[in-house]
Amino acid sequence: MSTFQLQIVTPDGLAFEGQAQRVLCRTIAGDVCILPRHCDYITALGMGEARVTLQDGTVRKAACIGGMLTVRAGVVRLVATTFEWAEDIDKARADASKQKAESILKQTNVDPHELDLAQARLKRALVRSHVANNM
């Protein structure tokens, strides 16, 4: 099975670098899957689960939020705002964050900025707990 060079970069450093058979992630326009020998490509990432199939065929899952995906001359770069492997996700924290966001969303008369923040937090928490639960 042919592979390609994959780099996963986040603001906290390099999350992954090596050969992969394929990578699947959610973009702002839906899920995409990149296979070897893809043409040059750029898209922005949404919020969702990412699946990386490594050289030996094992599949690793991760929560991948924001950023972009580029393919240039056969090298795939996943530049994500947050990228956490499923086994690294702090489930308790995600659940706590989800509950907190829900309690804010339930209240009436919250200021719109708070509401936006709470919605974003809820989305992130849902992605994280979804990935962590389906390891």
């Binding site: 973009t27 702002i28 326009a29 995409v32 043409c39 040059d40 490509y41 750029i42 898209t43 922005a44 972009m68 240039r72």
Partner: peptide
């Protein structure tokens, strides 16, 4: 040539 999805402006504004 580079393929932009959905299109270059949307990608740009998202980034």
């Amino acid at each position: 040539l580079t393929l932009y999805e959905p299109d270059s402006e949307t990608v740009y504004n998202a980034i």
